[in-house]
Design a protein around this nucleic acid. Structure first.
Lengths: 341, 341
DNA sequence: GTGAAAGCGCTAACAG
DNA sequence: CTGTTAGCGCTTTCAC
């Protein structure tokens, strides 16, 4: 590990000058600069990021808190976040909370402000109180995918209009002619997807088909959960012509359930989800869904976090991403005439 | 940000003593300790990890280099790696190389030894020379899933016997009675999967059915790649009764291709992959595959890296994971009698 | 047992 | 333009 002063010594200057050359600060004589650069090169000097961080009073890393890396939603988000961070010269520390608030708190306690300059929170099931505490300690926090643009959480956040996402799904099914629709609300007790369900229901009412929501079940936010949910739904109400799931994974599970029950998708049953994860494109039939701007949210979240770190943003700014978009694929179609009651 | 000396002041001692109390080093009087702990508590003191790292001459973070977070292989691995790291009090910086050796090198240059104590390399398409350089600079490197246990790479690594993985796939298909098998070799030009193909071919020979490998194509390591590969295979040799893909993603693509060609899996075509990613369980029909100990590799890789950092390991140790295991699901079956030539 | 002091590698005033 | 001087917050000898 060659240090600044070793370089300085070789170049016959002092470490401050080397520092100035490297960071283009202060004026340095052209000739001196050349000597310094030569020395840097000869010695293979690389700045010690930890030492620099300590001296500057700021860390080069950002913490990304996520409930599980294994969430199929994660890849696109993390990819975009990492790229954005890199472009700003920052590194990303991934903190998996496993949906356990304790682990989340422990992470925050340890690294927020001491190893990471700021914290990105992505569905990590953290206590708001812990986040506020983190903020108070001087480490900015950004919530990455706030579901309710019209009800800001009192913390900086990147919001996506999931109410609209639900509405778009509803409109699509209604326009296709579906009048007997089952709903799978994913996310368990915490029920993070309430906004999506509400958007769906509200739109049904707006379109004059409030009665089209025939049945509704809660389910785990997984393929298996969707499978179980759909099975329950179709058993209780065999005449459903469509199922709306608040997330893609359970929607995929619903398609499997339909297959297991001998129902053809989309001929006998239409299925639609929300998010547009990679898998949605790869399923057979390909899943119709409402695409949500995941990568954009990641990029914006990084940008906002950096502004907060630089203290260039208000106390609890809310930024809204582009609206969700319907993506019609092969899992939705007009209901079969004989399926109608 | 309360500092050590603030705590010290409040406790009426010096920062050295506080440090001793916190790290259980040196002897501290019971009464003093109590006072110190009380002050720590009252002030909400948290150690500044960056400062500590600088003073200790070691960083609390490990770098995980990966070609793409979006690789469906990644979740299980990263989850296990992050947990293992956390259990050892380390944090994980995720470095996405996008398969670009330049990005990889830039990452290594910047953080290895200056922000991270060691580097985990997972399919990141890095130049060995860059990795050796990193080592020489004092930051240990571990390759996470070396495919050839019998040909160590000259760098510390966690190896998985992918030759055996290929062999198990071959044995399974042969035992089922398949004699006309198509092979999809994933991974493109770099051809990281050569060992798997060789294992498959070798085992065919061992079993006396060298001729069963009727055709072989190269394809991208994606669902789409597998789809294209399988389509090509089945077009050129419509009488194939089984397809072996060197990875699960292309195997899944092969199943889709079969469906598109009107072939029933497994009745008219058996498909088998390698790895056992989550998706393999969730596809319809569920994919038969050869499971590889991904999580174990992650855990071992972290352990080895920490040993290397602590200088408790030889120069280029190779650790071999548990052997791969056949997982028979619904995508493989005996060939239809009338399909045989 | 506890304190004083040096230093990790770098940056940031301020002098000259 | 370049050098001097202080730290950043913590750990770690080494005296007392």
């Amino acid at each position: 590990m060659t240090t600044l002063s070793e370089v300085a010594q070789r170049a016959g200057v002092t470490s401050a000058t080397v520092s100035n050359v490297l960071r283009q600060r202060g004026k340095v004589g052209a000739e001196t600069r050349a000597r310094v650069l030569a020395a840097v090169d000869a010695l293979g000097y690389r700045p010690h990021l930890t030492a620099r961080a300590l001296a500057e009073g700021r860390a080069p890393t950002l913490a990304l808190m996520v409930s599980s890396i294994a969430n199929p939603f994660y890849p696109e988000f993390a990819l975009a976040a990492e790229q954005a961070a890199r472009q700003h010269g920052r590194f990303l520390i991934v903190c998996n909370t496993n949906d356990d608030p304790e682990i989340g708190r422990a992470y925050l306690e340890q690294i927020a402000g001491t190893l990471s300059d700021g914290v990105l929170v992505m569905n990590a099931n953290l206590q708001f109180e812990d986040l506020r505490m983190t903020q108070r300690r001087g480490a900015p926090v950004v919530l990455c995918m706030w579901e309710k643009p019209h009800e800001p959480p009192g913390l900086p956040c990147i919001a996506v209009d999931f109410h609209l996402a639900g509405a778009l799904a509803a409109r699509h099914l209604i326009e296709l002619g579906h009048r007997r629709i089952g709903i799978i609300v994913a996310g368990g007790a915490a029920c993070i997807h309430a906004e999506r369900e509400r958007g769906f229901i509200d739109e049904l009412a707006v379109l004059g088909h409030a009665g089209a929501a025939v049945a509704s079940v809660h389910a785990d936010d997984t393929v298996e959960g969707g499978h179980q949910g759909a099975t329950a739904l179709l058993t209780a109400a065999p005449d459903l012509s469509a199922i709306f799931a608040t997330n893609d994974l359970p929607a995929l599970g619903a398609m499997h359930a339909a297959a297991d029950l001998g129902l053809k998708v989309p001929d006998q049953l239409s299925v639609i989800g929300i998010t547009d994860i990679q898998l949605a494109r790869q399923s057979r039939p390909a899943l119709s869904t409402v695409a949500v701007p995941t990568a954009e949210a990641a990029t914006q979240a990084i940008a906002l976090l950096l502004e907060l770190i630089a203290q260039q943003a208000g106390p609890a700014p809310v930024r809204v991403c582009s609206p969700p978009l319907l993506v019609q694929r092969a899992s939705t179609a007009r209901p079969a005439p004989d399926a109608a009651v």
